[in-house]
Every structure is written in structure tokens, then in C-alpha cells.
Design a binder for these strands. Structure first.
Length: 196
DNA sequence: GTCCGGATCTTT
DNA sequence: AAGATCCGGACA
């Protein structure tokens, strides 16, 4: 049986088992497909951030290996989903490992199909695709959640500092955020307060 | 056990 | 500019 063209093969785990910064760049333009019961929800990634492990003070794994961060210490190619501010979830792709606790945060998607609202911000990405903590540690090549290669060439990439990590010292200044230049679906990233 | 603050978003 | 609303991590 021929599948619809939109069911291309997901990215293999090996895609995620490479330098995290590179994965963050190459994820721009890729598609997230979520099976939510009878619903199919999909979006095209337009904004990401790289989190570079224990040495990166903005990365959760810099506080050590704990129940929450455990999944980041495992193999690449699974989801790290955590709750923030008591009401939103954020979706990450675990990169590298086992033993290397790095990840890429999906900050914005262009809604393609079945999305619940907009996807211009990490909390909205999870709301749009109905992703919550139950998908923590799920495969990114699975039936319920998958990341597929880009089906059209992404526009030029832009990069800048990550959002909301002003506490992270020199790591706050690193240009680890990537987005598709000119996309109207990128988060506003209103920058939070500047460090004193 | 208490306390603090956050990889956010919405409303004022 | 501040509230919503909860958990992880730090400390005692």
C-alpha cells in the first residue's frame, strides 16, 4: 500500500547523534508529526535552540543528573518534554549520548495540519500539537511522535542569542538560537529582562 | 520539610 | 507590568 507522500520516513536516531548545534540548524524546515488519537497534527519547525550539556549553564543538565533530566543523558533521538511555569510544556529533541546530556528546544513551528492554535513559541508548540509530559522519553521516530525531513528547502537561516536565559552568564550570549529568516511563524522572543 | 524561581504566555 | 500555577532543585 502506498502511503500518502506526507508519510515520509522519520529522521533516524543517527541524525540526532551529531553535534547539537548542527542538529539545531538542520532541524529548521523539518516536520513534526503527532498522532493524537484519531487526529493528526503536524507543523514545520522554524525556530530552535541548542542546549549544550552540563557546561552550558542554561541547560537543565548543568544541574546534574536528576529524574527530570535523566532522559537527556540517554541516547539521542527521543523527546525531552518538561513543564515550565506550572502551565506549559516544552519539547526538546535529545541529541548525542548516551552519557552526553544535550538537546535541541523546538521554539516555533509553522502549523501544517490539525494544529490547536499558533505555534510561535515553545509553549505554543506543545499546545498546538497537544504534547505533554506523557511524551517525555518517547521516540522521535514513533507512531505518536515523529520528526520527518524537510519537504521543501528552508529559507536562509538566522541566528541569535537564546531566549529567557539571561541568568546563564557568558552562555546567555552564545548564538545558539536558529530560525528561518523572514518566517512569520517565528516566536516574538521579546527578550525578557536584561541581566543587571 | 520550606523556599525560590523558571528554556512561557496572557492579560492589564 | 504582573499574574497564572506547579515542580525541580537547593537547602535545613
Amino acid at each position: 500500500m502506498a502511503e500518502p507522500a506526507t508519510f515520509a520516513a522519520p529522521l533516524p536516531a543517527a541524525f540526532f547523534d551529531r553535534a547539537t548545534e548542527r542538529v539545531a540548524r538542520e532541524l529548521i524546515g523539518c516536520r513534526i508529526v503527532r498522532r493524537d488519537g484519531p487526529h493528526r497534527r503536524a507543523g514545520r519547525i522554524v525556530e530552535t535552540e541548542a542546549y549544550l550539556g552540563p557546561r552550558d549553564r542554561a541547560c537543565h543538565s548543568s544541574r546534574g543528573r536528576t529524574a527530570r533530566t535523566e532522559v537527556m543523558f540517554g541516547p539521542a533521538g527521543v523527546a525531552y518534554v518538561y513543564m515550565i511555569y506550572g502551565m506549559y510544556f516544552c519539547l526538546n529533541a535529545v541529541t548525542r549520548g548516551p552519557g552526553v546530556a544535550e538537546a535541541v528546544l523546538v521554539r516555533a513551528i509553522e502549523p501544517l495540519e490539525g494544529c490547536l492554535g499558533r505555534g510561535d513559541g515553545p509553549g505554543r508548540v506543545c499546545r498546538a500539537l497537544r504534547i505533554d509530559g506523557r511524551l517525555n522519553s518517547a521516540s522521535l521516530a514513533g507512531a505518536d511522535l515523529a520528526i520527518l525531513p524537510a519537504d521543501r528547502p528552508p529559507a536562509a537561516l538566522a541566528r541569535g542569542p537564546r531566549v529567557g536565559v539571561g541568568y546563564a552568564g557568558i552562555w546567555a550570549k552564545r548564538l545558539l538560537r536558529f530560525w528561518e529568516r523572514g518566517s512569520p511563524f517565528v516566536s516574538r522572543a521579546q527578550g525578557k529582562r536584561a541581566p543587571a
